[in-house]
């Protein structure tokens, strides 16, 4: 009995040690592989995209060996915490909710969110080109009111567990009918088939789909930033791994100074999304 107890304790200790292992020289980076152009997979199943290239560049600067690990979006943060990988680079915006659970490096890129509808849709909100939700003034209120009218009772598709879902849930544009999907691809499919009235995601995600599927969609309304949309995209790291955090922060500094981030952003997004 005693021996059994001891064995169990040893096994449990080993289990927890291995689960919380600090990164060794091999840094595992988790990404979704389903959110082009941030991260995606090519026809042969290889991971490609802005963050895949950037991860390799940052690792070169940090002189770490890195491997990329695929992970479904909805389990991304739990997988980081359970030690499946050591860092997240998955187009994950830096938000206050997420910061309660994990640390973020400084942002490396930022781009705006936008609604998209099927071409020929009658949803045409009259709004300015962009809106920042960081501090909402009277003009912004007007924009939000216009959106509220345009989307009242409409079905809007979003990827589950994203800033886009949080925005629609926040009630800033009233009661919309939110449908959630596991991946952005599925949002695009249902948007194209006409099941849903609109989608909300990174503007580049819709543009990427248009480029591949023949311009079926059209962006409407303003582009969103700030507030629930977070402050750029950064590397997610466990709270305990402060060493890795500072490694990433200084590597991002270096990559920015050398113009690497800008170059990769232009290659993948078509414009300079670096920050």
């Amino acid at each position: 009995m005693k021996q059994l107890k001891q064995t169990l304790i040893t096994l449990l200790t080993l289990f927890f040690l291995s689960a919380s292992n600090l990164y060794s020289d091999n840094v595992k980076i988790g990404t979704e592989g389903a959110y082009p152009p941030w991260n995606a997979k090519d026809a042969s199943g290889k991971l490609v995209g802005f963050e895949v290239d950037l991860a390799m560049e940052l690792c070169k600067i940090m002189k770490h060996n890195c491997t990329l690990v695929e992970q479904d979006w909805d389990g991304m943060i739990p997988a980081l915490q359970s030690g499946k990988f050591d860092a997240i680079m998955a187009g994950m915006s830096i938000t206050d909710e997420r910061k309660q659970k994990i640390n973020f490096s400084q942002g490396y890129a930022d781009e705006v969110a936008s609604f998209a509808v099927l071409k020929g849709s009658n949803i045409k909100p009259k709004t300015p080109k962009s809106i920042s939700l960081s501090d909402i003034d009277s003009n912004d209120q007007k924009t939000l009111a216009a959106l509220k009218d345009a989307f009242e009772g409409k079905i809007v598709g979003v990827q589950s567990g994203t800033i886009h879902q949080n925005f629609l849930k926040s009630g800033l544009i009233g009661k919309v009918n939110v449908w959630t999907y596991k991946t952005q691809d599925e949002v695009n499919l249902d948007l194209a088939s006409g099941r849903i009235d609109a989608g909300l995601a990174a503007a580049v995600a819709f543009e990427d789909y248009n480029a591949k599927a023949g311009s079926k969609l059209k962006l409407v309304g303003p582009t969103f930033s700030g507030g629930t949309f977070g402050n750029g995209v950064g590397v997610g790291i466990r709270k305990a791994d402060s060493g890795l955090l500072s490694d990433f922060n200084s590597a991002i500094d270096t990559a920015r100074q050398k113009g690497i981030i800008k170059k990769l952003a232009i290659k993948h997004f078509g414009f300079d999304a670096s920050m």
Partner: peptide, 8 residues
Amino acid sequence: KYIISTHF
């Protein structure tokens, strides 16, 4: 899944 994706 929704609760997990917002509260982890």
